[in-house]
Simulated assay, not measured.
Amino acid sequence: MERLQKIIAQAGIASRRGAEELIARGRVRVNDQVVTHMGYKVDPEKDRITFDGNPINLEKKIYLLLNKPAGYVTTLSDPQGRPIVTDLLPEINARLFPVGRLDLDTEGALLMTNDGALGNYVLHPRYEINKTYEATVKGMPSAAGMQRLAKGILIDGQKTYPAQLRFLVKSRSRSKIEIIIHEGKKRQVRKMFQAIGHPVLHLKRTAYGNLQLGTLSSGKYRTLTKNDLKKLFLGKIPFTIKNIPA
């Protein structure tokens, strides 16, 4: 038996807190009965759970690491008709969603899953999952500029958390810098370098935690194992997963 709000979150409908709000509003039914109190427990294999009259699909959980190319939007639909990341997964029948976002022009590691619990844990500030990027920037930032980014810099009225940075390539015309952050604000890395006068020319995410993109080709994906997820969370997976290879 599991708590109803946990089941809703695992189905990817809402976060745990969002699921509680949906339950309180009477939008969730168990065996055709509205449930509005928190802590209600259900058997996902026996009970019929619906949200706004639609059955909640507790399908087999899938975890993929995709190397997103530039030119794809990290959404499940796009009113402008641009390519979306799920276009790269034509043989996957399950309804997967991206965990977080990458800008249209940003490439690299993108987690895709149908497990809402994974998404909630990866994005929750409490777990501070590091994201590693390789940023090619115009010019060569000074030591003072790099120090500003490392300590945190004011962007859109908010100061960023400390970052880890190191040069991969130094050049007066353009430099490549590895930057590690655990936040996920919109266009954050680009805005950080713009703030010190060195706009990003190319950006690629190379890792979540210790889960590396490695040699995965652009536009390709691989299925993640339990050991991969442990790398993501630096050791212990903070939620229960079933039927996934070690």
Rank of each mutant, 00 (worst) to 15 (best):
R95D: 15
Y133K: 01
I129A: 10
H37R: 03
G235V: 14
K46S: 09
E45Q: 15
N210W: 10
F51R: 00
A94P: 05
A94L: 06
P98N: 00
Y221T: 00
E128K: 11
L76S: 13
K6D: 14
I84D: 04
E178G: 14
I84V: 12
K68A: 11
K176P: 08
N57S: 15
R222W: 10
E183S: 06
E107I: 00
R101M: 06
V73I: 07
G12F: 03
P69R: 12
A150P: 08
E2T: 07
G139Y: 06
Y221Q: 08
I241V: 15
V122W: 03
F97G: 03
Y208L: 13
T132R: 02
Q147A: 13
T86W: 04
R17D: 04
A246P: 09
L22E: 12
L104H: 03
L168W: 08
G26L: 01
I196S: 03
V85S: 07
D52P: 10
V34P: 02
A9M: 14
V189H: 01
T223A: 14
P162G: 02
Q188C: 02
P83C: 10
Q212Y: 00
I92W: 13
I181D: 10
A19K: 07
I177W: 04
L123T: 07
R101I: 02
G12Q: 02
L104Y: 12
N120Y: 13
V28Q: 02
L111M: 07
I196P: 01
I56Q: 13
K46F: 06
K191C: 01
L22Y: 15
A70F: 03
P162R: 02
E178P: 11
S77T: 07
A163T: 10
V85K: 00
R148M: 08
K68L: 12
Q212I: 02
L165N: 12
L154F: 08
A207N: 06
K220W: 05
P90E: 15
G81R: 01
P79W: 04
T206E: 10
M146V: 08
V200W: 06
L213P: 09
T223Y: 12
L102T: 05
R48G: 11
T225A: 12
L66E: 09
R29K: 14
S175P: 08
G26A: 11
Y63C: 07
K151S: 05
L201D: 08
R166C: 08
R172M: 06
R205Q: 08
R3P: 10
D43Q: 11
E134Y: 10
S142Y: 09
P83Q: 09
I153N: 05
Q147H: 15
K176M: 09
Q194C: 04
Y63V: 05
L165E: 11
T160S: 07
M140D: 07
L111W: 03
H198S: 08
Y40I: 05
R95C: 12
S175L: 12
M38G: 13
V169G: 04
S175Q: 11
I237S: 11
Y72L: 06
G26Y: 14
D78N: 03
I56T: 11
I8L: 15
R82S: 09
S171T: 00
R82I: 01
G197Q: 01
K185H: 03
S142P: 01
T215D: 12
G71C: 05
D32L: 10
T106M: 03
E20G: 02
